[in-house]
Write a protein that binds this DNA or RNA. Structure first.
Lengths: 109, 109
DNA sequence: TTTATTTGTTCTACAATTTGGAATAATATT
DNA sequence: AATATTATTCCAAATTGTAGAACAAATAAA
């Protein structure tokens, strides 16, 4: 577990993992990413990012059970850690603090 | 002007440029970054990022006048473009939409 | 029961971003 | 003129972002 920063694609994937909860695994995350951004993403991109997030200690993973669906092999389920939540929360606070200072975004929080 | 994405350090620098207005130049941006994040940043990092943001069309720059201060040579002043503002705004909308879906961040916007 | 199809992961390579530091330049003070 | 200070520009290395091929396991169809 290396101590490092959080890239921006990493942040989105981490957030989606938190949002998806129990059903957070690579394929589903890729699908969700495309739905929410409209941007295509390769499955390889998602996998290597998940691995990096796990190395950094922001996620944990374990293999789940195979599903009844055709081809439904075992998935690797990812779970956000307390550290991961903290990092997301810090990133959010920081971003909001900046936006508040930018006149072009004058608004109430 | 290449059409590309916005990295996360890039986003912060772009935002700070908008916030600083007239006085947005590399040294000041580095200083501001350190004040706001508590994280040290090298001046080279800021410069290469500014150049990339300009290549992407999110910023414009021009040389200003020398200041009266000792060693106060001419600064390259950066200004955010309409495209840059739009990109920032889009990034903000997207991020807020995600946060709203994450139960750990249950709150009113 | 073999073969296809589907769902998934793991591995590998390359591109873009992030980051630090050295080299250089311009200005004011001594 | 020499020195100290404020800046920029240039270059190299590490980390992130991204795509795709190779492989594995499960069900459906033949």
């Amino acid at each position: 577990m290396k101590e490092t920063r959080l890239g921006d694609f990493e942040e989105v994937i981490l957030l989606l993992t938190g949002i998806l909860g129990e059903s957070a695994y690579a394929f589903k995350l890729a699908e969700e990413f495309e739905d929410q951004t409209g941007r295509a993403v390769s499955i390889g991109a998602v996998h290597s990012t998940l691995t990096r997030l796990e190395d950094k200690g922001f996620l944990t993973s374990e293999m789940g059970q195979p599903s009844a669906a055709r081809g439904g092999r075992r998935k690797r389920i990812y779970t956000i850690t307390a550290l991961g939540q903290r990092v997301l929360s810090d990133a959010r606070e920081f971003k909001m603090a900046l936006w508040r200072q930018y006149p072009a975004f004058e608004m109430s929080y």
